[in-house]
């Protein structure tokens, strides 16, 4: 049983399941960060738009 598990781990001790889980977590984190960047970008556009529209000409 133990040797079967060992045969599935890489040199650093990661099993395919753990690697898959880590990859999935990294993708979700990247998407969350991209979402945050997008939110900052959109809010900046909205704020900038308001101020550009209201500036003294």
């Amino acid at each position: 049983m133990a040797s079967e598990q060992d045969s599935q781990t890489d040199a650093n001790g990661w099993t395919p399941e753990l690697l898959k889980q880590r990859r999935r977590r990294a993708v979700i984190m990247a998407l969350a960060l991209a979402g945050l960047v997008g939110m900052f970008f959109l809010v900046t556009l909205v704020r900038l738009g308001e101020n550009v529209a209201n500036r003294a000409l």
Binding site: N12, G13, W14, L18, Q21, R22, R24, R25
Partner: peptide, 11 residues
């Protein structure tokens, strides 16, 4: 890797 496996196991 064994030490971090528990911490890293969270999906």
């Amino acid at each position: 890797a064994d030490q971090v496996s528990l911490a890293d196991a969270g999906s």
